[in-house]
Design a protein around this nucleic acid. Structure first.
Lengths: 218, 218
DNA sequence: CAGTCATATGACTGATTAGTCATATTCTAC
DNA sequence: GTAGAATATGACTAATCAGTCATATGACTG
């Protein structure tokens, strides 16, 4: 965790350091990310950074926390409402949160993606554990769907969960790849209404396919 | 491309160098992969490596070629037969090839995965082009399936293709993650029969879900 | 044996890295 | 104003990196 000195910093300076660190770690994996470049961009002395963080991995942990906290906040907002939703509405809400996270915090999303896709100093078993717990979350959701009768009971929950997680983790890339080819981007960092509706269409289509399949049963 | 001198090398030495380079580039992304470590492991002088390859990126290109050639060979073997298959059988064959590639050449698979998942010196647009062309391949396949009546005609082909590619690219990880938790691994590098049947079950399940969906329509 | 040529070598260069630490500056309290 | 604590600094260390090059080795030729 960062030292107290970092929390004591004036807000703008603290934010500038975070921004520069996020920039660097979103563009390079852990090993290649350069502390020297971060301090140069942030306009502080290297020694100063080591007043705020114990070492490189301490800074990296801080950023990972920032990623998961930001995502968790968006989740909490989306699900703040009442009772458990029907399965496919939960799925829609989840996809929506993930897509919005990608659009509103693309750099944080990249850091998270790098962390889970193998290029981070996280021990291999921790990574696998993380993925496994994400899959388990979906397994639970799917099993609830089976009980409520929304989902075919002899679907393999783990396989279905795997497909969801794959789609979910690649959707961000797909969305941003599509954005790059469109001319609909403004560079304010905020997604345009055109992008938003395009994305909404995308994940509704994805859920449609997962729900009904693509085979013609006529 | 590698220089002629590399092709002239005695087979065992050449293979040792390739093996060490594959080891290094499968464990680290391009920037972090170390030429110094490769030559140390291979037991050759650093100068020697530069007799065989122009520079680091030349060696890397060689490995990427190795990845795509190896995969292409497996594809060719799987599809050497006659006429175009029905859509879902093509899909099954494709999944099968990818899973076998992952199991038989896990290190090459890792290099390929790193190259497409953002951490390589490949220009961004080339990466996107690569992904796009993979998706386009599926789009074509799906559109053929629509014409032949196997696939619902108002499915969005690009969205479906995206789901396939996502599942395909994550399947390798999923398979190897499952292998790690099982006790069924022997360390000869070859997959055990138990693994193979487990994997076959997995991608049959995946195709089942993509085909029919998971919703209960009873 | 001598001459020629392809290959092998590892010390070296200049750049970059994470992290340190003695010194300097700034802030707080009296 | 002044003592003392907290913070800021950047030159420095030791390690590592990709890439170079003068020299050495060894194989083949006449």
């Amino acid at each position: 965790m960062p030292l107290q000195t970092f929390e004591n910093l004036p807000e703008d300076k603290r934010q500038r350091i975070i921004d520069c660190a996020v920039d660097e770690f979103s563009q390079h994996d852990y090993a290649s990310a350069s502390i020297s470049k971060i301090v140069a961009n942030a306009g502080i002395a290297k020694g100063s950074l080591y007043q705020y963080f114990n070492d490189k991995s301490d800074l990296y942990s801080y950023l990972l926390d920032l990623v998961s906290q930001t995502k968790a906040e968006m989740m909490a907002k989306a699900f703040q409402q009442e009772k458990p939703l029907p399965f496919f509405e939960s799925l829609l809400a989840l996809f929506s949160v993930m897509a919005n996270f990608e659009l509103q915090h693309p750099k944080l999303a990249k850091i998270g993606y790098k962390a889970t896709s193998g290029k981070s100093p996280l021990p291999e078993d921790l990574l696998i554990k993380g993925k496994h717990s994400t899959i388990q979350y979906f397994v639970t959701l799917i099993n609830q769907g089976k009980i409520s009768g929304e989902i075919i009971s002899d679907i393999d929950a783990e396989t279905a969960a795997f497909i969801f997680v794959s789609a979910l983790s690649e959707m961000g890339n797909f969305v941003s790849a599509k954005s790059l080819t469109d001319n609909t981007i403004d560079n304010t960092g905020k997604p345009t209404p055109a992008q938003l509706s395009e994305i909404e269409r995308l994940y509704q289509q994805v859920i449609m396919i997962l729900k009904n399949g693509i085979a013609n049963k006529g």
